[in-house]
Design a protein around this nucleic acid. Structure first.
Length: 275
DNA sequence: CCGACAACCTGTGAGC
DNA sequence: TGCTCACAGGTTGTCG
């Protein structure tokens, strides 16, 4: 479920509900995530105050203070993770691996069937943590533009879609939005990155921003009741132009949309509109 | 430095 | 109904 727009939607939804709250600790039922959950998580969180929530790529960051020390709880939802704000007494289901316990009796519950997600602790603002230190720039920041895309794609022979999905180049563009942005920009996902002109880089950077922004807006429309049910934000109901639509007709030109594999992942595109 | 590939896990749907 | 297979929204680590 987690693409950048969902993590951002999650952050915005949790912000007013968690800011200023104090943690009582953590209850870890199964710490075997991508990396083992810190064994001392319960003690490390007890008494810490949540100062704010931030996002880097698809990482959700909880900024904590306790006494004079600042730390960050880094949460990634992997392929199948979700976070739910529940009453701590609510019975956990099969893949509810851990609860972050709030002093007021609520819990932020992590569910992750595939366990590709992670929960880590870092000192300070977390910038030095290995997971964040070498992360690429934010796609919605002004720094991500045609000039940047053009610069990093020179002498790069790999397909442009793979470059877009490389988190060390730009953080948080997943499979869905790489496909959708390339369609919006009219660019063939197989094109070697270095072959993109400056002008097409401008177009692609713009397409990335508008595609992500629109998805966040759609997610925002469901923020009101996102604490309920499975918390799936509204962007998931958004119509994709190409993703998951192989064999169907392109909305722009009517040709059959294709699905190919790139690095083992599905790429959806229109052979007519994307050159 | 670059790029290809395996690895970590479980669930679901299609086809037989 | 039950088996097997392909595939799924992510990222790191290793190797050539």
């Amino acid at each position: 479920m987690p693409e950048l727009p969902e993590v951002e939607t999650l952050r915005r939804g949790l912000l007013p509900r968690l800011t200023g709250e104090v943690l009582a600790g953590a209850r870890v039922r199964d710490g075997r995530l991508r990396w083992p959950v810190p064994a001392d998580l319960d003690r490390a969180l007890a008494g810490a105050r949540i100062e704010g929530l931030a996002r880097r790529g698809k990482y959700l960051l909880l900024h904590l203070t306790r006494a004079d020390s600042k730390r960050v709880l880094i949460v990634h939802l992997g392929m199948s993770g979700s976070l739910l704000l529940v009453d701590a007494a609510t019975m956990p289901t099969a893949h509810d691996h851990l609860d972050l316990l709030l002093a007021d009796g609520r819990a932020l519950r992590l569910r992750d069937p595939r366990r590709f997600g992670c929960v880590c602790l870092a000192d300070g603002d977390g910038r030095a943590h290995p997971l964040l230190a070498r992360l690429g720039i934010e796609p919605l920041s002004p720094a991500f533009d045609g000039a940047y895309l053009h610069r990093v794609s020179r002498r790069r022979l790999r397909p442009i879609k793979l470059l877009l999905m490389d988190g060390h180049v730009v953080a948080g563009i997943g499979n869905i939005y790489a496909c959708e942005a390339l369609f919006a920009a009219g660019i063939d996902p197989r094109l070697p990155a270095e072959r993109l002109s400056r002008r097409r880089c401008e177009r692609l950077a713009e397409a990335v921003k508008t595609t992500l922004a629109r998805a966040i807006d759609a997610g925002g429309s469901s923020l009101r009741d996102f604490v309920a049910a499975d918390g799936r934000p509204g962007y998931f109901q958004m119509e994709h132009a190409v993703y998951g639509r192989a064999g169907e007709a392109c909305r722009r030109c009517g040709r059959r949309l294709l699905r190919i594999a790139q690095q083992g992942r599905g790429t959806f595109f229109c052979p007519g509109c994307q050159r």
